[in-house]
Design a protein around this nucleic acid. Structure first.
Lengths: 192, 192
DNA sequence: CTGGAGTTTCAGAACATCTTGAAACTCGAT
DNA sequence: ATCGAGTTTCAAGATGTTCTGAAACTCCAG
């Protein structure tokens, strides 16, 4: 006797897709993109095919303007690309399908938009209080005791060290063409 | 002739601190905590000593209520601890001073609050469309062609793989007591 | 028990972000 | 040049988040 083939109806598939859109949409804000952006991206990813603005609007129940702006942001992020179909004047949009590339793209953008500016600012702040360190602390020339400044600088230096490490770590992932993240995971699992 | 000692005035130090508060506050939202929370944490970190609610209020110009709720959240996150001073009825708060511990705490909390729920939801969604894969695709029992379902499942599986990896990677950092992050950085820098 | 310093709570105000819808724009076809 | 399908822009409105301030609460001292 034969095992019955799984019967997946169109409705069930659509339901699974909708649940996925909701889940991914929720995750979006944690990753630095808005809920709607995440949902549009999720739709294009899980759909697995290029869609035009109307399809996106109708499926997600958002306005034309919102769809347009959101798709533009996704293109700026590098998560979505425009596609043209012969004989169709509409513009189509498709999402990158390789999850590791998606991850690298997000990391690259967040480094650029969030980590680097903070790093630059931290350097500037560090410069404001000279190169006095715990070791270099000497006779009291300042109005504030040298050791207070030294402690302040130490705290800044430790933080700078951390942020620099995060930056380098991120760039390592982004830079290595292939499966950088996968490699990292493998290495880490063997080390400890 | 003698090099003059750096003269850091109290005002300059305060200025550097203020700039730091602003910079760290900006970074907060990217890390999953609000701007004010990040500023309060920054103040306690850079100050390097326990402070009471009034000091926090005055320095950051926020209301008593806001200070109270923000400090409570920081304690829930595990980034700040209560301290009692003998002979003083006020409560004092101090920030963890080890930056690696801070990083681990943030990663642990974000895993727990953001990654794990999504992971659980993704599993549920994956279950909705059976175990049909590209290889198992067979005679058309469903209303939707089996290969469509198989492709959908593959996309979900690839995403699950990625999120699982992130989760494991995070837990590895959080779990290893010592300098897990530092170790990772060293390892990564040698690999590529 | 009472007074008061210190803390917490929470409804409404202030602020920030996201979304809509309609007008302006683009561009190929006729 | 004109038409019209398709797209983009943006001011106003809707929604969501954070903050304030005052009242309620806690708890110790006298």
């Amino acid at each position: 006797m034969r095992v019955p083939a799984p019967k997946i109806s169109a409705a069930k598939l659509a339901q699974a897709q909708d649940d996925f859109l909701a889940a991914w949409g929720q995750m979006g804000p944690s990753w630095g993109i808005s809920r709607t952006m995440a949902e549009v991206h999720a739709l294009l990813y899980i759909g697995g095919r290029p869609m035009n603005a109307d399809e996106v609007m109708d499926r997600l129940r958002i306005s034309r303007g919102n769809a347009s702006m959101t798709l533009r942001s996704l293109i700026e992020w590098g998560l979505v690309q425009r596609v043209h179909k012969r004989g169709d004047r509409k513009e189509y949009f498709e999402a990158e399908q390789d999850v590791w590339t998606i991850a690298r793209t997000i990391i690259r953008e967040r480094l650029r938009r969030e980590i680097l500016p903070v790093l630059a600012t931290l350097y500037e702040i560090r410069d404001q209080t000279g190169d006095e360190t715990a070791h270099a602390a000497q006779e009291g020339g300042g109005i504030v005791a040298p050791d207070v400044v030294a402690a302040h600088n130490q705290r800044l230096d430790r933080l700078l060290e951390l942020v620099q490490m995060l930056d380098k770590l991120g760039e390592r992932f982004v830079g290595s063409e292939g499966k950088g993240l996968r490699l990292a995971a493998t290495v880490l699992s063997k080390v400890v």
